[in-house]
Design a protein around this nucleic acid. Structure first.
Lengths: 345, 345
DNA sequence: CTGAAAGCGCTAACAC
DNA sequence: GTGTTAGCGCTTTCAG
């Protein structure tokens, strides 16, 4: 139907202008819904656009405007439920605000994390949202990127950089208090992971300890279980070892949902019933929590709030805000499902 | 330390050239590690680059070359374990091949899926990998994009478009055969989902039926459970309803891991033990399968193969391959964990 | 309300 | 081996 003019599949703004017999500026005005264009002109240009099948070239527009409308999201990995859910909300919210997300998996690599900060190239994205787990506060502050950035999580909090997290210590305290209110008094913490350099565990452990002390209970170091890694097998081994060593506990506060799954598995293997004999409280409230049997009670960070807050902060920066780092605390709740219940005695 | 020259933060190739007293071309040669540059020249230019803190502007490079080195990955949602895992592998492999991934969540929206195909803008990505669930073969063929594309999953397979999936029918057949070999004969299929317009269920059901027939068993329509949706609650309700109606079954072949989790939950609630009384076989082999207790036996699509194959196909297209649609079958295995076992009688 | 022209920063011929 | 120059396609003053 259309003539041979669409041969190369590349229709330029200029082509539309020629076809409609107007200048590029006029076409541009129509494309951008500029207000002061006469209706008949608009119609004429639109007709040319449709006939030619014109689609604006984003790259060119970017070069001209200097804005990419893209945000990089750098996460350790996208298939771990917590990160996957964060990615989902950030993706959704970014789209709503007119940005596209480009994802970068650092795969727990120090170099990959450094690369995120150092950004060797420019003009790719307008900003970055980054959840570091391997590099620390000082390094981030030092490598300070030219691109607006906001940090997620608790590993690193340079004073110079915006940051969003939940109050881990308070959340842990609340979790312990919930367990205490169930008449549980021997609460295990799962787990202190060997080689974990993030601060999450530290903060959570702090809250755990504070809550115990506040309740007049002397924390028992034996109840802080050790694990060799972050996998479910590591968690199972940690619980199994504790049981084997005859350590008594009637509840476990887990540092993430995966370890809570591990607790469920190890406890079942040991013939201890959940929640009758031991309560298990997860952390992150991911799909694992919804899927297990019994369904997992868990500390639930408001991931949607984390996403919107991070984007708010980033948009400020992208618009030119230059103040010092802002520190936002996102809310959380504790969702009780089937793995916690009052101890019957 | 550096002089005021880096004021605006924007250092151009030209600036480096001036600083080093050479032409832009020479700087470009150094940036691109062009072979024939004298060592001393390279060193001089590199020094200028370092002093000025030059970083190439990707957008400009793109405009000039016409390549974006970006691939769009359009998935229904990134936080469902199966899609999250696909995203992870595609992301990893793309990075290895020098591409960046921009993710697009269609959120099961028809319009969002159409937008993926119709791509209103151009020059954003070099190609797209798309897992449709709402729009069909014909529509995709009709909307046929200007950008190279490869499809994932089984919803739509236009003859004109490249495509990768696993052999669902064969996989279902294998699954049923495994169950049959365990002396199970009353195998339920979980589930036929109301409103499901994808072809996955159809193909899987076909294999289920074929395997039964081959074994000389007449498929019992009552064993094809119905569900109102894809959530775990829907699955639990489906199994519970079947038990309630007194339908006897000693195994369940699940269309995805979530439903398998549902089966585990419903069965436990009904006091039926897994795998002693009933075997449960999941599908997708996601993190859910590894995390449950007992750990889920499951049909495991080779997600890494899916990722690399999709990228292979896409790279061909991006390099100009223009043939008709190619149809690639990715391998799968069946992983036996704790939810399947021979029936003891 | 519309047109002309100067870039945005880089690449790629093509000379030298 | 290195330098010149003409674009890539769009936006955006600035005139008119």
């Amino acid at each position: 139907m259309a003539s041979g003019s669409r041969s190369a599949g590349r229709v330029r703004l200029k082509d539309v202008a020629d076809r409609a017999g107007v200048s590029m500026k006029t076409v541009s005005n129509v494309v951008h819904d500029y207000e002061f264009v006469s209706p008949q002109m608009r119609e004429r240009v639109q007709a040319a656009i449709d006939e030619l099948g014109y689609r604006p070239n984003l790259t060119a527009r970017r070069l001209a405007t200097g804005k990419t409308s893209m945000i990089a999201l750098a996460l350790p990995v996208v298939d771990q439920p917590y990160y996957a859910e964060i990615a989902r909300y950030i993706g959704e919210e970014a789209e709503r605000r007119g940005y596209r997300i480009i994802v970068e998996q650092t795969l727990n690599g120090v170099e990959a994390e450094r690369a995120v900060i150092r950004d060797r190239e420019e003009g790719l994205v307008d900003g970055v949202i980054f959840h570091p787990v391997r590099i620390g506060t000082l390094e981030i502050a030092r490598l300070r990127p030219g691109t607006p950035i906001v940090l997620l999580g608790e590993s690193a909090r340079p004073l110079t950089t915006d940051h969003v997290m939940i109050d881990n210590t308070q959340a842990a305290r609340d979790g312990v208090e919930l367990l205490l209110a169930e008449n549980r008094s021997r609460i295990a913490f799962l787990a202190d992971v060997r080689g974990d350099i993030t601060e999450s565990t530290h903060l959570r452990l702090l809250g755990y300890q504070e809550a115990l002390l506040t309740a007049g209970i002397q924390p028992d170091p034996e109840l802080v279980l050790r694990s060799d890694g972050f996998t479910i097998e590591d968690g199972v081994a940690a619980i199994a070892a504790a049981i084997e060593r005859g350590i008594h506990f009637d509840a476990v506060l887990s540092r993430d949902d995966t370890f809570a799954m591990a607790a469920l598995r190890a406890l079942q293997a040991a013939g201890r019933s959940v929640p009758d004999e031991v309560s298990v409280l997860g952390w992150d409230d991911t799909v694992l929590a919804h899927s297990s049997t019994p369904a997992l009670s868990a500390i639930s960070p408001d991931k949607f709030a984390i996403a919107t807050t991070a984007l708010d902060l980033l948009e400020d920066r992208m618009k030119g805000y230059e103040g010092t780092g802002r520190h936002r605390i996102a809310p959380y709740t504790i969702i009780e499902r089937g793995t916690t219940a009052a101890l019957q005695r």
